[in-house]
Protein backbone atom coordinates (compact mmCIF):
# COMPACT_ATOMS: atom_id res chain seq x y z
CA UNK A 1 0.00 0.00 0.00
CA UNK A 2 2.82 2.36 0.82
CA UNK A 3 4.29 1.91 -2.60
CA UNK A 4 0.98 2.46 -4.28
CA UNK A 5 0.28 5.62 -2.38
CA UNK A 6 3.75 6.91 -3.03
CA UNK A 7 3.38 6.22 -6.71
CA UNK A 8 0.05 7.99 -6.78
CA UNK A 9 1.39 11.01 -4.98
CA UNK A 10 4.53 11.28 -7.05
CA UNK A 11 2.79 10.70 -10.34
CA UNK A 12 0.04 13.18 -9.59
CA UNK A 13 2.45 15.80 -8.42
CA UNK A 14 4.74 15.35 -11.37
CA UNK A 15 1.95 15.62 -13.92
CA UNK A 16 0.52 18.71 -12.31
CA UNK A 17 3.92 20.28 -11.98
CA UNK A 18 4.65 19.67 -15.63
CA UNK A 19 1.43 21.47 -16.46
CA UNK A 20 2.90 24.66 -15.08
CA UNK A 21 5.73 24.69 -17.53
CA UNK A 22 4.61 22.71 -20.55
CA UNK A 23 1.55 23.35 -22.61
CA UNK A 24 1.08 19.69 -23.37
CA UNK A 25 0.40 18.89 -19.76
CA UNK A 26 -2.12 21.63 -19.23
CA UNK A 27 -5.12 19.46 -19.90
CA UNK A 28 -4.03 16.67 -17.63
CA UNK A 29 -3.19 19.24 -15.03
CA UNK A 30 -6.66 20.70 -15.28
CA UNK A 31 -8.24 17.28 -15.08
CA UNK A 32 -6.28 16.26 -12.04
CA UNK A 33 -6.87 19.58 -10.34
CA UNK A 34 -10.59 19.36 -10.85
CA UNK A 35 -10.60 15.89 -9.38
CA UNK A 36 -8.57 17.20 -6.50
CA UNK A 37 -11.03 20.02 -5.96
CA UNK A 38 -13.90 17.58 -5.63
CA UNK A 39 -12.01 15.25 -3.35
CA UNK A 40 -10.88 18.12 -1.17
CA UNK A 41 -14.49 19.01 -0.61
CA UNK A 42 -15.25 15.42 0.31
CA UNK A 43 -12.34 15.44 2.73
CA UNK A 44 -13.95 18.35 4.53
CA UNK A 45 -17.06 16.25 4.96
CA UNK A 46 -14.98 13.57 6.59
CA UNK A 47 -13.76 16.15 9.07
CA UNK A 48 -17.29 16.99 9.99
CA UNK A 49 -18.12 13.33 10.45
CA UNK A 50 -15.19 13.08 12.78
CA UNK A 51 -16.48 16.01 14.77
CA UNK A 52 -19.82 14.31 15.09
CA UNK A 53 -18.22 11.08 16.19
CA UNK A 54 -16.12 12.75 18.85
CA UNK A 55 -18.95 14.61 20.46
CA UNK A 56 -21.36 11.71 20.13
CA UNK A 57 -18.84 9.63 21.98
CA UNK A 58 -18.66 12.27 24.67
CA UNK A 59 -22.40 12.16 25.08
CA UNK A 60 -22.40 8.39 25.14
CA UNK A 61 -19.84 8.36 27.89
CA UNK A 62 -21.64 11.13 29.75
CA UNK A 63 -18.39 12.92 30.21
CA UNK A 64 -18.13 16.31 31.79
CA UNK A 65 -19.42 18.89 29.38
CA UNK A 66 -21.50 16.44 27.44
CA UNK A 67 -24.36 18.92 27.61
CA UNK A 68 -22.34 21.29 25.52
CA UNK A 69 -21.57 18.49 23.14
CA UNK A 70 -25.25 17.82 22.85
CA UNK A 71 -25.80 21.44 22.02
CA UNK A 72 -23.12 21.25 19.41
CA UNK A 73 -24.65 18.21 17.80
CA UNK A 74 -28.11 19.69 17.91
CA UNK A 75 -26.88 22.81 16.18
CA UNK A 76 -24.91 20.82 13.65
CA UNK A 77 -27.59 18.35 12.74
CA UNK A 78 -30.28 20.95 12.73
CA UNK A 79 -28.35 23.25 10.48
CA UNK A 80 -27.39 20.40 8.22
CA UNK A 81 -30.93 19.20 7.87
CA UNK A 82 -32.24 22.65 7.24
CA UNK A 83 -29.46 23.40 4.85
CA UNK A 84 -29.97 20.20 2.88
CA UNK A 85 -33.64 20.85 2.62
CA UNK A 86 -33.09 24.45 1.68
CA UNK A 87 -29.98 25.95 0.19
CA UNK A 88 -27.22 28.08 1.66
CA UNK A 89 -28.67 30.99 -0.11
CA UNK A 90 -32.04 30.60 1.56
CA UNK A 91 -32.97 33.41 3.96
CA UNK A 92 -33.09 30.96 6.84
CA UNK A 93 -29.52 29.96 6.20
CA UNK A 94 -28.56 33.56 5.85
CA UNK A 95 -30.28 34.15 9.12
CA UNK A 96 -28.12 31.56 10.76
CA UNK A 97 -25.05 33.18 9.27
CA UNK A 98 -25.94 36.73 10.06
CA UNK A 99 -27.61 36.01 13.37
CA UNK A 100 -25.28 33.46 14.92
CA UNK A 101 -22.14 32.70 13.01
CA UNK A 102 -21.08 36.17 12.18
CA UNK A 103 -21.90 37.76 15.54
CA UNK A 104 -20.19 35.04 17.49
CA UNK A 105 -17.06 35.15 15.38
CA UNK A 106 -16.94 38.89 15.40
CA UNK A 107 -17.50 39.01 19.13
CA UNK A 108 -14.73 36.53 19.67
CA UNK A 109 -12.58 38.72 17.51
CA UNK A 110 -13.56 41.67 19.63
CA UNK A 111 -12.43 39.85 22.72
CA UNK A 112 -9.12 39.52 21.02
CA UNK A 113 -8.61 43.26 21.19
CA UNK A 114 -8.66 43.13 24.96
CA UNK A 115 -6.40 40.14 25.05
CA UNK A 116 -3.91 41.75 22.69
CA UNK A 117 -3.65 44.86 24.76
CA UNK A 118 -3.28 42.90 27.91
CA UNK A 119 -0.56 40.80 26.36
CA UNK A 120 1.27 43.85 25.09
CA UNK A 121 1.20 45.42 28.51
CA UNK A 122 2.54 42.34 30.21
CA UNK A 123 5.13 41.58 27.60
CA UNK A 124 8.04 43.50 29.02
CA UNK A 125 7.37 42.16 32.46
CA UNK A 126 8.44 38.73 31.39
CA UNK A 127 10.65 39.41 28.45
CA UNK A 128 12.84 42.44 28.31
CA UNK A 129 14.98 42.05 25.26
CA UNK A 130 15.62 43.89 22.06
CA UNK A 131 13.04 42.01 20.09
CA UNK A 132 10.33 42.66 22.66
CA UNK A 133 11.12 46.33 22.89
CA UNK A 134 11.28 46.73 19.14
CA UNK A 135 8.06 44.81 18.85
CA UNK A 136 6.21 47.09 21.23
CA UNK A 137 7.75 50.27 19.84
CA UNK A 138 6.70 49.29 16.35
CA UNK A 139 3.21 48.55 17.54
CA UNK A 140 2.97 51.89 19.34
CA UNK A 141 4.25 53.74 16.27
CA UNK A 142 1.69 52.07 14.07
CA UNK A 143 -1.05 52.71 16.60
CA UNK A 144 -0.17 56.35 16.53
CA UNK A 145 0.12 56.37 12.78
CA UNK A 146 -3.23 54.69 12.34
CA UNK A 147 -5.08 57.08 14.56
CA UNK A 148 -6.02 60.56 13.71
CA UNK A 149 -6.59 63.54 15.74
CA UNK A 150 -9.61 65.75 15.56
CA UNK A 151 -7.66 68.13 13.46
CA UNK A 152 -6.05 65.64 11.20
CA UNK A 153 -3.41 62.95 11.00
CA UNK A 154 -1.00 62.34 13.81
CA UNK A 155 1.92 64.61 13.14
CA UNK A 156 5.07 62.84 12.04
CA UNK A 157 3.73 59.46 12.85
CA UNK A 158 0.76 59.38 10.55
CA UNK A 159 2.44 60.89 7.55
CA UNK A 160 6.07 59.87 7.83
CA UNK A 161 7.00 57.26 10.36
CA UNK A 162 4.04 54.98 9.87
CA UNK A 163 4.49 54.61 6.10
CA UNK A 164 8.25 54.34 6.45
CA UNK A 165 8.00 51.59 9.01
CA UNK A 166 5.30 49.63 7.23
CA UNK A 167 6.64 49.99 3.72
CA UNK A 168 10.37 49.76 4.38
CA UNK A 169 11.34 48.25 7.69
CA UNK A 170 8.44 45.91 8.10
CA UNK A 171 8.63 45.08 4.41
CA UNK A 172 12.19 43.86 4.79
CA UNK A 173 11.27 41.45 7.53
CA UNK A 174 8.10 40.41 5.76
CA UNK A 175 10.01 39.65 2.60
CA UNK A 176 12.46 37.58 4.49
CA UNK A 177 9.64 35.68 6.09
CA UNK A 178 7.90 35.19 2.78
CA UNK A 179 11.02 33.90 1.12
CA UNK A 180 11.61 31.63 4.02
CA UNK A 181 8.06 30.34 3.81
CA UNK A 182 8.42 29.83 0.09
CA UNK A 183 11.64 27.93 0.55
CA UNK A 184 10.03 25.83 3.21
CA UNK A 185 7.04 24.98 1.09
CA UNK A 186 9.30 24.27 -1.83
CA UNK A 187 11.34 21.88 0.24
CA UNK A 188 8.26 20.23 1.64
CA UNK A 189 6.76 19.82 -1.79
CA UNK A 190 9.92 18.36 -3.18
CA UNK A 191 10.20 15.92 -0.33
CA UNK A 192 6.70 14.76 -1.06
CA UNK A 193 7.38 14.44 -4.73
CA UNK A 194 10.55 12.53 -4.07
CA UNK A 195 8.70 10.25 -1.71
CA UNK A 196 10.76 11.23 1.27
CA UNK A 197 7.79 12.56 3.17
CA UNK A 198 4.59 10.59 3.03
CA UNK A 199 2.07 12.48 5.08
CA UNK A 200 -0.74 10.60 3.42
CA UNK A 201 0.05 7.49 5.42
CA UNK A 202 -0.65 4.09 4.02
CA UNK A 203 0.25 0.76 5.46
Amino acid sequence: MRIITAVIAIATGTLILLGYFFEAFTDIQTLLLNWAVILAGVAAIVGIFNLIAVHADKIRRAEKGSVYSALLLIGLVGTLLVGMLLTPRHPVMQLLLNGIILPVEAALMALLAVSLLYAAIRLLRRRTDVMGIVFLLTAIILFLGSATLPFGDMPLFGTLIHPWVTQIWALGGARGILIGVALGTLTTGLRVLFGVDRPYGGN
Binding site: L117, L124, R125, I140, F143
Partner: peptide
Protein backbone atom coordinates in the same frame (compact mmCIF):
# COMPACT_ATOMS: atom_id res chain seq x y z
CA UNK B 1 -5.81 53.24 18.78
CA UNK B 2 -4.94 56.07 21.10
CA UNK B 3 -6.12 54.06 24.02
CA UNK B 4 -3.89 51.23 22.90
CA UNK B 5 -0.96 53.61 22.68
CA UNK B 6 -1.54 54.80 26.19
CA UNK B 7 -2.10 51.37 27.63
CA UNK B 8 0.74 49.69 25.84
CA UNK B 9 3.18 52.46 26.43
CA UNK B 10 2.22 53.11 30.03
CA UNK B 11 1.65 49.51 30.84
CA UNK B 12 4.80 48.54 29.07
CA UNK B 13 6.88 50.93 31.09
CA UNK B 14 5.25 49.78 34.27
CA UNK B 15 5.83 46.18 33.34
CA UNK B 16 9.40 46.91 32.38
Amino acid sequence: MLLAVVLVFGGGLWSL
